[in-house]
Design a binder for these strands. Structure first.
Lengths: 187, 187
DNA sequence: TGAAAGATACCAACTGGACGGTATCTTTCA
DNA sequence: TGAAAGATACCGTCCAGTTGGTATCTTTCA
């Protein structure tokens, strides 16, 4: 058995593993059911080892949240760069990111984690701050009420799929995505 | 001090109080932070008394969920009865119920409880079942993709307000509600 | 019909496990 | 060789659920 005692020290890799395992476990079982013991075990480290990297559980969770938000932000930017129509550009990127199951979107492993972060009262401030900043930045192109409705519907679709409402919805994810995108074009 | 021990037995009233207090506390502090002790205290009963009415904590939560769902269902029916335009009738009622802060809607005391129930993996089956049944029943009038988008946007708005995103949204709740309703009329 | 018998409602104290966090010791490596 | 990385063992708290009772209500039957 190769414990972290024998193998080469690689603190950055361990820290990374702790973050990834925390994300994965929270996604599978919910943020509530997340225990530091389980995270440490999954990362192949003892609890003491975990507490060496993070002063307490909250700090671990905060780090995970920041990590996820960064990824989401980058994803949005990537979509926007590929879009050369100004009006509704942010909204379209937002829709795409919400549906893209490689990142945060429907069916992605991080999705369940993300919703825990959103619904956790202490946790959603970072998200709100991010959104407010984005909306301010894209005010000129994405301020129309219909665009807000599109973004809210994307949120709703995302949540619905997390809840396993896929079979309940009469529109397929891809169809829904295309229809939402279409609504951002007719101004 | 008049404890429930000495005073006249009124099991139904106590059971009702336990449900109401559980709903209220979960709304204030979240389902995660809900303890049976706190519920019992709030209802003026000891923990042992609570466990007489509910075999375990989960059963209490399940009962609360069933209760909330019943109320929501009744609210939908009430709105539908007042609407004499067939197309999109369910969707309009759904939107109204989501925004009505007297019942479940934005700003209501039950909202925070409801989202806990929704996001709780074990808990949302009843909700999905309810929704599936409703969609089946109103298939003829509420099957259009745009109506699904409207319902999803209503969900999104509801969630956004729970998260305190009110100041972030550029559209007021009432304006949003009217715009969503308008989208259900032009078929 | 009324008193005993049984059932239901409720209480107070306790149990056992889980979990976050700490103190201290060992190992690695620059 | 000493500071960082990580292990081991332990503590205190919180909380769901249990146990063994007492009070009140309902049913039975002489």
């Amino acid at each position: 058995m190769t414990t972290a005692y024998n193998r080469k020290k690689q603190p950055e890799a361990v820290r990374r593993a702790l973050l990834d395992c925390a994300t994965k476990l929270a996604g599978e079982w919910g943020l509530t059911a997340l225990t530091v013991q389980a995270v440490a075990d999954a990362a192949g480290v003892t609890k003491g080892g975990l507490f060496h990297h993070f002063p307490n559980k909250q700090a671990l969770i905060d780090a995970v949240a920041a990590d996820l938000l960064d990824q989401f932000d980058a994803e949005i930017d990537a979509y926007m760069a590929k879009d050369d129509h100004p009006y509704g550009r942010f909204t379209r990127a937002y829709v795409e990111a919400n549906f893209n199951n490689q990142g945060f979107g429907i069916g992605s492993p991080m999705a369940a984690m993300a919703i825990s972060l959103i619904t956790n009262p202490d946790m959603n401030r970072a998200w709100l701050k991010w959104l407010a900043e984005r909306l301010r930045r894209h005010y000129d192109t994405d301020n129309a009420p219909i665009l807000e409705i599109v973004r809210l519907a994307a949120d709703g679709a995302w949540t619905a799929h997390l809840m396993g409402a896929a079979e309940v919805l009469s529109t397929s994810p891809d169809d829904l995505r295309l229809r939402l995108l279409a609504l951002t074009l007719d101004n």
